[in-house]
Nucleic acid binder design. Structure first.
Lengths: 343, 343
DNA sequence: CTGTTAGCGCATTCAG
DNA sequence: CTGAATGCGCTAACAG
């Protein structure tokens, strides 16, 4: 295999044109004060010589690597991959690059990922927290260096870090109220980690809706789960063994809702007649399952776009955007057959 | 907001310890010829002063950025996000970082992404090709610079670039034969872009199975689709209008299979009695849909891991791994109710 | 509009 | 085992 030829530098271009490297550098960056003619010549020669800029040198000089870090709990969930797709779309149109890593729902990994991002000198960071993260100390170094960190979806309140999320409380309230309107009186909730805002809020919204409609709540009606298919099935099994069964289930995500629902249907229960169902996220499987699942349309792609744009705003000192501390995105209830007991 | 304090450099550490920066640099890298005592002192002072290495300077010097680029058609598909998760897992354990971008199934975007990766001087590249990519010219620059490029899943034969994929031909043959064994005689195929190996192979495997079992094939039995839910529904609509209907459908992915199957069921057809179904990928929705979908288990996560490991092997001059040109991963047929007409 | 000079922080000679 | 010197390629003063 032949050795790669030496890289062309701005000095090579400068030499060929009998001008200074500075001018070449400026020409390449479309600096306003450079003569259009020289600019064109520079570009032409650069192309001809196969020049490509050296981002390492540039970064060393400017102290900016033009990279944005992303830390998410998992990459392989429909919702998250949709968020990442949204982020990528926005970032791809900018001059930044994306470093992506996953915490695998472990705070320990999240800490090590954050450190890696910090050491790699990302210019900004987008984070969705792991299941069990209970403090934000590992993001302190970013504050020291004025590196913007933005949390999305799985957020935690912090003075320095903007948050982007949807109104989980309201959505859960809405969903639960809807179930109540379908004359459900005993609604069970399959909830996620009560460390995470999203699951706390969904639980709170659910509970408040019960209260507001004078429905009783007892401990048997709350099942904390890992929200996997298996988790949903386990919940189904628990329900099957209950003396007094719930007449509705509101699960904190679609996957566990579907797992639970199909488990109970396989056991002979009818949905929604015996037991109505509602999930959360509008995962594709919610419209594949029969009866189709009532859920909350939670646009991951849009959330990714918004998060990325907000971060870019911070990086370009956009005054308006820097004002934003919390951004609450719209979400929408989608009523499907799994909860329609009338009409 | 206060200005970030100046970064600590190896010179600062050197000064504090009255040794040279060279020694500090060596100590930090665990160079064998450095006294253990000095090494420890260096590490201690580095930690104390809050030192972090400057990857820009290091990269400029060594000409390696320790980044691996990934270009995929889409990030938000279950299969791809699983692949990416596998890649991330392996890379996260190494000293490399991941640049990720998506071509959105457009060759044009793929070209621009490849250029960006090249200009950002990635050390290696993992690629799954866009729907309509019909040549590999945009990857030539990587050859010139001896940058390894590895294709996975959506691959194209090329002397310089290793490929990782599954035996799509065999899997399709197996699936089609299975349908034939269920006494299906008229099997329709919903295929993807006939530019992409994966879809060509699936079609070929299907066709060969028909031939081997002396079943007729006519043009009406092939529908080329974009393999979305809508694409599946469209295929269903076409089928509904056929005078002689197929008694089985083999779709090149699960999403379109499910779209088509549910469309036909909604129109009153019975699955598998009137029409049997098979898909491809083992997407989660294939086990949620009823009847559950017969499919090919295609482990994205594993493919990601393998691809990343192979690339790392190339980067570390691992002789064994560098020998590998093509790697064919195992896949497995999963027979479910959508195709079980007997027993 | 263009050039001169200098230095970002590190790793690698080469010399002890 | 350690150090002095050098340059990777670029951009930002500053000066004209």
């Amino acid at each position: 295999m032949s050795e790669p030829r030496k890289e062309v530098t701005i000095y090579d271009i400068a030499e060929k044109l009998n001008i200074s490297a500075t001018t070449v550098s400026r020409g390449l960056q479309d600096h306003p004060k450079i003569n259009d003619k020289t600019k064109k010549k520079i570009l032409a020669v650069a192309a001809e010589m196969g020049y490509r800029s050296n981002p390492f040198a540039s970064s060393l000089r400017t102290k900016r690597g033009n990279i944005i870090g992303v830390i998410v709990p998992r990459l392989n969930s429909y919702f998250m991959s949709d968020v990442i797709a949204g982020i990528e779309k926005v970032i791809n149109e900018s001059n930044y690059n994306l470093f992506i890593s996953q915490s695998l729902e472990s705070m320990k990994k999240e800490i090590s990922n954050a450190r890696a991002m910090f050491n790699n000198r990302v210019d900004g960071l987008l984070v969705s927290l792991a299941y069990n993260t209970d403090n934000l100390d590992h993001f302190e170094p970013f504050i020291t260096k004025n590196i913007p960190v933005i949390f999305f979806d799985r957020v935690q309140e912090h003075l320095q870090f903007p948050n982007i999320f949807i109104d989980n409380y309201k959505a859960a309230y809405q969903l639960t109220s809807h179930l109540i309107e379908q004359s459900c009186k005993r609604i069970l909730h399959i909830g996620g980690s009560q460390l995470r805002n999203v699951y706390i809020e969904r639980y709170n919204g659910y509970k408040r809706a019960l209260e507001d409609h004078n429905l009783p709540f007892d401990d048997e009606l709350l099942i904390i789960s890992d929200l996997t298919t298996q988790g949903g099935q386990d919940a189904g099994s628990t329900i099957l063994n209950m003396e007094i069964k719930p007449d509705a289930v509101f699960a904190a995500n679609d996957i566990s809702a579907v797992g639970c629902m199909q488990f109970l249907m396989d056991a002979g229960m009818r949905v929604p007649e015996d037991i109505a169902f509602a999930g959360f996220n509008n995962d594709p499987m919610s419209s594949v399952v029969r009866p189709q699942l009532t859920t909350i349309d939670y646009k991951g792609f849009e959330m990714g776009e918004v998060a990325a744009k907000l971060l870019l705003g911070h990086l370009t000192d956009n005054a308006d955007l820097k004002q934003t501390h919390s951004l609450i995105l719209r979400s929408e209830m989608i009523v499907r057959d799994s909860s329609k007991r009338k009409g």
